[in-house]
Amino acid sequence: MNRDNFIIFFISSLLLFCYLAIWFYADYVKSNLGDPSVVTGYSLFVVILLLFAFNLRKRLSFVPLLAAKYWTIFHIAAGTTGLLIYWLHTGSIWPQGLYEQILGLLFYMVSFSGIVGVLFQRLYPKRLNETGSEIIYERIPDVIAEIREKNEALILLCTSETEKNTLARHYIETLDWFFLQPRYFFNHLWGGRKGTSWIEHHFTLVRRYLSQSETDYLDELKSYAVKKNQIDFHYAAQSILKYWLFVHIPLSLSMFTFVLWHLLIVNIYAI
């Protein structure tokens, strides 16, 4: 067992142990005529605080508090534990009462978005790595612009060298659309090959009308198109890895607000 697997095993076992301990302790409290929901409720609150600590860890990146990947593992395992404790706490899938239903809905939405995020993180980084290239998300517009500049310089050179405008016309009328901005966003996310097909189709289409000297320029242009297609995938994959947090984090904050409200209300009204 390598170090990573050991840590996954350790964290999962620790949280499973904690969950079982909470379960047994709640049962013990219940069997002593106590209120088990106090035990499960405060345990859930602690888990939620630990889940929020993940965000804190990201802000304090300069502090040597284990590698981020271990925090991610802990975050995922604690999230799962939180969901189990939630069911233990409410004793049902869907609570009664408006604010508890809102809290329940937010909890489920945060959990669901978290699960979706985990799936994204399991899928896209691996596929990005398979492209063999790295690119910073914020620089993608710059890189696309640079490719476009290089293409345009190449087309001008081709036109002046070969004194033919077939390739230039094809670029202006067809290829320019592809290089203008990222294309086939959703197709890239699903793992489709529409971008590659588009390149193959439009470069093969024009090749029969080009002379030998123009074909060399076409090949170089195609290599830029292939790179652009890779960048399009980077853009799509990195976008989804960033934008799912637009759901997860705001919902988490709302949920936390309602958690604090719930804590306050039960202490005022019931316990």
Binding site: G132, I135, I136, E138, E146, K227
Partner: peptide
């Protein structure tokens, strides 16, 4: 990747 990512440019993520 051969596309110029302008490694000399300083990113300001914050």
């Amino acid at each position: 990747m051969s596309v110029d990512q302008r490694p000399d440019r300083y990113e300001r993520p914050l």
